[in-house]
């Protein structure tokens, strides 16, 4: 099954990339843009027919490697 793992910085953790992108958006005229945060998406396949097992596997992989829970949160979706 296809699994999608979203990894984003925890609230309150400074995101210099997001800040830089926000400044660039402002200089392009998008003055209303604010709170820009950059996240990461990891798509992968796991060998199982169960959506629940696939989701659990994705979470396991996120905890082990894909996310650093000191600074990041993650969320897992089964996409097919």
């Amino acid at each position: 099954m296809k699994v999608r793992v979203f990894v984003s910085l925890k609230d309150g953790v400074l995101d210099p990339q997001g800040k830089a992108v926000e400044h660039a958006l402002h200089s392009l005229g998008f003055e209303g843009a604010s709170d820009v945060r950059i996240s990461r998406v990891v798509d992968l396949c796991v060998k199982t027919d169960s959506a629940e097992a696939a989701k659990e596997k994705g979470a396991e992989m996120a905890r082990a490697l894909l996310a650093n829970e000191v600074i990041e949160d993650f969320r897992v979706e089964v996409v097919g």
């Binding site: 953790v13 210099p16 650093n68 000191v70 600074i71």
Partner: peptide, 11 residues
């Protein structure tokens, strides 16, 4: 070791 190293504040 505790903590994490993020991107430098000034990028």
């Amino acid at each position: 070791l505790p903590g994490a190293l993020l991107r430098n504040a000034g990028m």
